[in-house]
């Protein structure tokens, strides 16, 4: 069993994975929300009645940040970081945990950015026809699907690692 991989212990790899997930999802959400919020603000400037219809679009890229946070909490919870002592995780297991976090870290980063872009197009639909607000939500929601798939993949991977490689 390796003590370190690339100079980092298993604990460090696990925490790095949790941090990547939180950072990737957070950055993606921040960019995605900024993107759609600018357009939404422009729409509301000209037509204040559309606020309620564009708000769900503006909020939608925020979910990836939540998925990143969930992943980080799962790592901390599954692998004993919430106790009083630092857990002992082998380097091999730590790398596995790190890899398990990557679906959320990468997919949430990019999907939130592109979801923000899609929401801009959808907001254009709402600006023209308020009654299309329901339909407009569907297109950015399709992008969300892949962030959800990534979260599911990460949860399954982390839960299997926790079951197969229990930490001391």
């Amino acid at each position: 069993m390796n003590e370190v991989v690339l100079g980092m212990s298993g604990t460090t790899w696990a925490l790095l994975g949790a941090a990547f997930a939180a950072i990737g999802g957070g950055i993606g959400s921040a960019i995605g929300i900024t993107t759609i919020s600018n357009t939404a603000a422009g729409i509301v400037t000209e037509d204040a009645d559309k606020f309620g219809r564009v708000l769900p679009l503006a909020a939608m890229p925020g979910t990836q940040g939540i998925y990143g946070l969930i992943t980080a909490i799962l790592v901390l919870s599954f692998f004993g970081f919430l106790g009083d002592t630092v857990p002992t995780i082998s380097a091999d297991t730590g790398v596995k945990i790190f890899l398990g976090c990557l679906p959320v870290a990468a997919v949430c980063l990019f999907s939130a950015i592109y979801q923000g872009m899609t929401a801009v197009g959808a907001a254009g639909m709402v600006a023209r026809r308020s009654e299309d607000a329901g339909k407009a939500l569907i297109f950015p929601a399709l992008v969300e699907t892949y962030a959800v798939f990534a979260l599911i993949a990460t949860i399954i991977i982390l839960s299997r690692i926790a079951a197969l490689y229990p930490v001391g």
Binding site: I31, T34, N38, G42, V44, T45, I113, V120, A123, A127
Partner: peptide, 20 residues
């Protein structure tokens, strides 16, 4: 992809309403 919607987003939002 990241910078253009942020830079022009506000104006594009206004334009979408004004086009109508």
């Amino acid at each position: 992809v990241v910078t253009e919607p942020i830079r022009y987003g506000f104006a594009v939002g206004r334009v979408r309403v004004l086009e109508g």
